[in-house]
Design a protein around this nucleic acid. Structure first.
Length: 546
RNA sequence: GGCCCGUUGGUCAAGCGGCUAAGACGACGCCCUUUCACGGCGUAAUCAUGGGUUCGAUUCCCGUACGGGUCACCA
């Protein structure tokens, strides 16, 4: 076979050589051990948790003085969605992930571009031409139906699927046949001519999993699709070589195609990057686990977390605890340190599929928010509300001091309250403070209802004095409790319930429901002072009548 | 079906030949307490399975089972 003739027939316009590109994209001048990595999403408009998960590469890169970049894998035109690139960038920016180079909203930056794969067509074709020249690639004119028939035949014969051996019908066709098809204008793809032996296992070092043994690839997989654009496999190898990527962090589902990536790197004589295959995020479905699915699981979308309003740092804290087994311990020892101060290590990454645990996320977020001051919570909530709850945003803007005071109840000190972990929950929790959103949700305590309800509230209103200290105020509550035949000490009531109408718990809960509409709320005295005397009296009187 | 990866309590997991097998979330109980939280103390709960290797296996090797992934001109 005259490979030079074939190469020119297939790629008449390609005049550059691989060497030209080697010169254009020289090795990066970075300190030893610097990690160069990236995220490489395809612009489908769906930004998912996995994208953020892999953005952990940023920590790795910046910890080592390396480079983190954004590449867009837009080789599948059919799936491309307008605005998807912006969506990725916005989401990453939201979570504080910074790119050193790559695609930006304005265009792109960096010396290793273009960073959109479709714009790198010439580069791929140059490498492809070289492979043809070496007799390592050939055109295949099979139609979709041909391939389907082949697959069915293999299924019937219980043979391995794929384009290989006797099924590789275009592998050794004479040049004349190829020329004839080309002249007819038949569509073709470029296939890799694999000499791999399925009996052979090749060792691959995985940054997370240690040594892996993979079967050598024996199929003639597709390098270039009929539109001349590469498949993921070929694009990945060319790009990560010429962009001088040192670490490829990706989901473990790529493990299945690792053999062809390794084969490509090796036959091209390029140094393989360190592959880091992360565990797939799983979810319980009935009694079995399964991969998080785009269609079934809203929590796979990154937007789910911003909508629910989990603070970004809290989301990171959760992700980090799932990703790095020693992070949780570190965080416990350094509760106030920024998670960026933690040294992330690949070796500590989990290799088994982690179940996604929303409860734990919530717990981490509550813990996180409980340590923040009212100012922080106020601005975080306001920012969230501006997009997801405009009415709340308007109320907060109208009465910032009131909202800050409300947020501040139970905050600070040794044992801060942990009432909410997300802005959505915060909005719900804080609703009772504002008269505009105050509603009665819980009923009156049984032991303090009816006649007693009037009696207690009347006395309480009579003695209520906003100049009192908390101690003075509570002493008065005790007086009323005692005077009306309730047990001042709940224990006493528990022991001899027949001696009392109830206990102080019933009295204070009555006040609580009157004031907040529910039985579980922070300290009554503090709440009253946030509401102010007028509103406090109004709510109490109103409840007395109702 | 072929190939690959994985398997420690309900969940996330530490462990990297010798331990009464950490810790966290969740559950439950007790204490604290004017409610709810918070906090403190405590309880229950785990090495899938069979064979090796070894003086000794959760740890190393092989098989089995189970779970997951993947076999496209999608990434």
């Amino acid at each position: 076979m005259d490979t030079a003739a074939l190469a020119n027939l297939l790629f008449p316009d390609i005049t550059k050589s691989i060497d030209d590109y080697e010169k254009q994209y020289p090795p990066r001048d970075l300190p030893a051990g610097a990690v160069v990595t990236r995220i490489a999403p395809s612009p489908t408009g769906f930004v998912h948790l996995g994208n953020l998960y892999n953005a952990i590469g940023e920590r790795l890169a910046h910890q080592t003085g390396g480079v983190f970049y954004l590449r867009i894998e837009d080789t599948d035109q059919k799936r491309e969605v307008a605005g998807a690139v912006e969506a990725v960038i916005d989401a990453m920016t939201f979570y504080g992930v910074k790119f050193d180079e790559g695609v930006t909203k304005e265009g792109e930056s960096g010396a290793y571009g273009p960073y959109r794969q479709r714009q790198r067509k010439e580069l791929y074709q140059t490498v492809a031409k070289q492979l043809v020249l070496r007799g390592l690639a050939y055109p295949c004119f099979c139609t979709e139906d041909d391939l389907k028939a082949m697959h069915e035949q293999q299924e019937a014969a219980k043979e391995n699927f794929g384009y290989y051996g006797k099924y590789a019908v275009w592998r050794d066709r004479p040049l004349a046949d190829i020329e004839a098809e080309l002249n007819k204008g038949t569509e073709w793809v470029l296939r890799f001519r694999s000499e791999g032996d399925p009996e052979k296992m090749i060792p691959v070092q995985d940054g997370i999993r240690g040594e892996l043994k993979v079967q050598e690839n024996y199929t003639d997989f597709v390098l270039l699709k009929s539109d001349g654009i590469p498949t993921y496999h070929f694009a990945h190898v060319c790009d990560d070589h010429f962009m001088r990527t040192t670490h490829v962090i990706r989901d473990e589902s790529w493990l299945a195609t690792l053999p062809i990536h390794v084969q490509l790197f090796d036959t091209l004589g390029w140094q393989r990057p360190v592959y880091c295959h992360t565990a797939t995020l799983m979810k319980m479905d009935g009694s079995s686990k399964r991969k998080l699915s785009k269609r079934k699981d809203p929590e796979l979308a990154l937007s789910y977390y911003s909508e629910a309003g989990f603070p970004q740092e809290a989301t990171w804290l959760y992700l980090l605890t799932v990703l790095n087994s020693n992070f949780e311990e570190w965080h416990l020892a350094n509760p106030d340190a920024d998670s960026r101060e933690f040294t992330f290590s690949l070796e500590k990454m989990s290799t088994s599929g982690a179940l996604f645990d929303l409860e734990k996320l919530d717990n981490i977020a509550k813990e996180y928010l409980s340590r923040k001051d009212a100012e922080f919570v106020f601005s975080g909530l306001l920012k969230w509300a501006e997009t997801y709850d405009e009415a709340l945003a308007a109320r907060m803007t109208a009465k910032p001091d009131f909202y800050k005071a409300a947020i501040n109840v139970g905050r600070g000190g040794e044992k801060p309250r942990k009432d909410y972990g997300s802005w959505q929950d915060a909005a719900k929790f804080l609703a009772f403070y504002d008269t505009e959103t105050f509603v009665l949700t819980d009923g009156c305590p049984e032991n303090a209802d009816g006649e007693m309800r009037r009696e207690i509230l009347t006395r309480y209103l009579d003695t209520l004095d906003f100049a009192d200290t908390q101690e003075e105020w509570f002493a008065k509550v005790r007086e009323i409790t005692d005077a009306l035949g309730y047990a001042v000490q709940p224990k006493k009531y528990k022991k001899n319930p027949e001696l009392y109408k109830g206990s102080i718990v019933d009295v204070t809960n009555l006040l609580r429901v009157a004031l907040t509409g529910r039985q579980n709320a922070p300290d009554i005295w503090e709440i009253s002072h946030v509401l102010g005397e007028e509103e406090t009296r109004r709510r109490l009187s109103s409840y007395m009548k109702g």
